[in-house]
Amino acid sequence: MATAAESLRSFDTVPRERPRLVRLARLARQHPTGVFGLVVIAGFVVLGIFGPAIAPYDPRELRTGGVLEGPSRAHPFGTNALGQDVLSRVIAGARISLIISFSAVFIGGSIGSFLGIVSGYYGRWVDYLIQRSGEAWAAFPSIVFYFMLITAFGQGVKTIIIAIAIGALFGGSRVLRGATMVEARSTYVEAARALGASEARIFFRHVLPNVLPLTVVLMSTSLGGAILAESALAFLGIGVEPGTPSWGIDMSGENLTVARLGYWHVVVFPGLAISLVVLGANLLGDALRDIWDPRLRR
């Protein structure tokens, strides 16, 4: 017959929580594409911060070599019509893309999460108001909306960030609203209420900690779209100021004209840079979402 001591000892055979690093390594093995995404985004951030220091030439410097030279050892990505080094411009272009996409996603993601949580937990007219505005916004062609913002705030980095943030805001509020509603109606919340917990305690101790990590997932999944939106606006010439080293700008105007004549390297490398970073952001976002909640997968 098992004594109390023996049954206590048998608890030892239950594996203890592994060290954090081991758990991380295992997570990484399960999500190799997520690790790839993380590496790409880390590289993107590093280039965005230190880009100008790393770049072999000043991205604005004219005549670093010949004009429209193909890729060579001195200019791995070639030079453009002004003789600027394409590699340096690609490296420097990370900065504006980083600033805009990260701030837009951070601002939109946090406001959107806040609104979504309030709307999911409180419901009633707040919910109605937020959801209807989200639908109205989604029904409006984004380019028309963007021009309204330009006329209201003027063209510039600030306006681009606001425009992209609003997109992330409504998308995020919907996701967090759903998640909050699920948590608020779960059995453990009912149990807490039955035990006499106050509304504030239920909200801050039970609901909030369970939905808040979703904010991070949300921000990472909307990062790719934000980078794409920024580059598309720059490409159309209605984004960041002309002259700024920007991937979208470098694929338009004069560069696009010479690309039509066969100087492919001028536009292809900035395009590859955008694609790679967006791919990284999407893979990272997918992996984080799977880790957080496999049910959200689609």
């Binding site: 790719g224 794409l228 580059s231 598309a232 490409f235 979208g248 694929m251 696009l256 690309a259 039509r260 066969g262 492919w264 536009v267 292809v268 395009g271 955008i274 694609s275 967006v278 791919l279 999407n282 893979l283 997918d286």
Partner: peptide
């Protein structure tokens, strides 16, 4: 995954640039 990552304007630019290099075909502008 790739389709959602490549900017549409980049694909369109490639349609102008690549066929003219590979097959000497230029898409009408």
């Amino acid at each position: 995954v790739f389709g959602q990552s490549v900017p549409d304007f980049f694909l369109l630019i490639l349609l102008i640039v690549l066929p003219s290099i590979w097959w000497n075909y230029s898409h009408p502008i």
